[in-house]
Write a protein that binds this DNA or RNA. Structure first.
Lengths: 155, 155
DNA sequence: AAATAATATGATATAACATAACAATAATGA
DNA sequence: TCATTATTGTTATGTTATATCATATTATTT
């Protein structure tokens, strides 16, 4: 599983370049989020972290999350109160999250055209947009196939 | 202010047609949300309701909200943990919320083409979408003008 | 109308999510 | 080194939401 490592390396380089500190706690929290299959909740992160670091308390996690969010290294999923590592933090503009109801997998999509259209559409309503939250909930391919197979067997 | 009244009448007719009960608590909660300028938080609703109805407790509000959400009469704003009356509950498909950072106003937008494109885009990623959460945060026309005017005066 | 079933509300407790405030420590810069 | 700033520790509390079981209301059946 080399990808999470490279994600951490990338984060480290980015923090260095920006002159912000990628402390052990921040690194560890990002690692936890990155190696998780789906999104993680703040208190699940806290439980995990507390095993290695007895002093961990809610502010410990929320501070680390705030930092990682500011740096664009993680995203918050508003509809789940959960957090997801960003695999392309250099990507500056809006993104869309695809959330699977079946397996909990969350994928980050970058349809820039869509983001542009949203902003244009909002502009026609007199709104100038500074932040987009786009969360699409449904089923991923695997879970759709699986549901279809089960329906098949039930016949 | 005739609009909130007609919204309530519309809700009443819709519930009657669907064979679900538009009880006094549900009606009152919808009225409160509808007459508010922006979005309302659950505990603000609770405080208001408790003044008229001493027995009101968190479950009272959350049950009413769950009902109204199910019936499509209100929307939940995930990024604010707040609730907004829907002025066109007959409208079945997706919607987009425009949230003003300045005055807190929230507007419901219906760019159906956009919703369709999102679904198509997600489909290309293997996801079949069942629910869309689209929240765009920025400034409404009034608040943009106001900010511009203030910058002008500051010169 | 009475009995039954289904739905809604009352009431208490607690779970889940998040921040305030201040003290202590560690890193950075003059 | 000393002062400054940033980070973390620590305690407490604020905010948002649900579980559970009792009671009451409404609808349905007889």
């Amino acid at each position: 599983m080399p990808e999470p490592l490279s994600l951490i390396d990338q984060a480290e380089r980015q923090c260095l370049a920006r002159g912000v500190r990628f402390t052990p706690i921040r690194r560890r929290v990002l690692e936890m989020i990155a190696t998780s299959h789906g999104a993680l909740k703040a208190y699940d992160l806290l439980d995990q972290l507390a095993k290695e670091h007895g002093a961990a308390r809610p502010p410990t996690i929320y501070r680390a999350l705030d930092f990682l969010l500011e740096q664009g290294l993680v995203h918050r999923i508003e509809s789940l109160n959960a957090y997801l590592a960003c695999h392309c933090p250099e990507h500056q503009h809006g993104f869309q999250l695809l959330i699977c109801r079946g397996c909990g997998r969350v994928e980050e999509m970058h349809d820039d055209d869509l983001g542009t259209r949203l902003v244009a559409s909002a502009d026609r309503h007199g709104f100038s947009i500074e932040r987009q939250t786009i969360e699409l909930e449904g089923r991923c391919q695997d879970c759709t196939s699986q549901a279809a197979a089960m329906a098949e067997n039930a016949q």
